[in-house]
Write a protein that binds this DNA or RNA. Sequence first.
DNA 1: GATTTGACTTTTGCTTTTAAAAATTCAGAT
DNA 2: ATCTGAATTTTTAAAAGCAAAAGTCAAATC
Lengths: 202, 202
Amino acid sequence: MPKNADEKRLKILETAKRRFAHYGMAKTTMAEIAKDLSFSKALLYYYFPDKNSLYAAVLEHVVEELEEDIAESLKSVISVSEAIVIVLEKRMEFVKKYYYILEYTVLMRKDLSTELDQLLIDSFENQKGIIKSVFQRGVERGELMDVDLEEISKIFLFSCMGMRLVVVKDLKSSFIPDKEEFDAILAMQKKMSAIFIRGLKV
Amino acid sequence: MPKNADEKRLKILETAKRRFAHYGMAKTTMAEIAKDLSFSKALLYYYFPDKNSLYAAVLEHVVEELEEDIAESLKSVISVSEAIVIVLEKRMEFVKKYYYILEYTVLMRKDLSTELDQLLIDSFENQKGIIKSVFQRGVERGELMDVDLEEISKIFLFSCMGMRLVVVKDLKSSFIPDKEEFDAILAMQKKMSAIFIRGLKV
DNA sequence: GATTTGACTTTTGCTTTTAAAAATTCAGAT
DNA sequence: ATCTGAATTTTTAAAAGCAAAAGTCAAATC
């Protein structure tokens, strides 16, 4: 019975994820999710306190997917450069794949619930941690200088993230940037990181 | 007589600049500008086709101020690092000083008039040119590697600009970021550029 | 003829209104 | 403890009205 309950929770999560990924938060209604599952709308509220929490759960889910994916990919990688390229590519792939889910957090930046806000902070910290550990390995191997990695990782991440913001101007129009734009951004991020890493070499 | 006409045009420009710098584009009316000068509103339209053109003229004016200021400051500077720091500081000072004037272009990013759009593109190109010539001098002096400076300058500028966008989230609320935020951004930009430049060294 | 203006017209940017849609609650059924 | 239908509350979005601001122009002034 409790197992069955968990299954239902998961089903809701999956269905919501599909809807959010396709139509975004604003254009997805609780009624639609319920209908997809042939559940009553009220049942959704039995498993999730409100729409926002459901969204947060979905977001957490996909963010974990990215984190695991990156962690897995980095296992076999040796050099700092290679590792950073992997991270950048995975990140970009992720943004492309879940654009409509992520869009809401960008649009709402300011007034997000504490829950969501914390989730984003955690996600950022995780990303920073990954970058940091990549650099850390470089330092240990004598490849990179011994600098304040906490700070450097943050700066590096900010540079990469910002690059995307500069190019993608119209966040309001909820229009997904085209492949060319994404590719151009990724190319710049790679080039920047190549120079950046070189600047950290011993 | 024509000289007097030019003077009036300039007076309008100055008054508009003061208003725009203090209240921003949206909160400044043509009637107010006219009243400040004891001109009739219609006279403003004799010298400028519309409010947008007046704004563009003001923006062009302040942008030129920045460009000249930077060019002047760079005359005496030798090393790449020093030069870049100067550019970053001047840029930030400029943003602080004319925040309410610049705000409009950021808010309206998408639907700006061709005129304004071109002005921003030109300004960006100018900034890129400055960075490029700084790097160029570094290359000539044998300080930096010989790379595609056009591309590198763009990437460098994007990284710096983006950094600000990442930190300043609420462009909508038309709230001026506080000194601490600006300082934090500038500090990161400086650190980033130090590593970046080191990454370009021969 | 180049400037300048007051009076006039058109647009734009708010409220306010309001109807529908969506979120959320809840008493009671399973 | 799970689940639902029906009812309630909140949001959203379109329409209407209105005041302020943008923009025009014929006539006056220099």
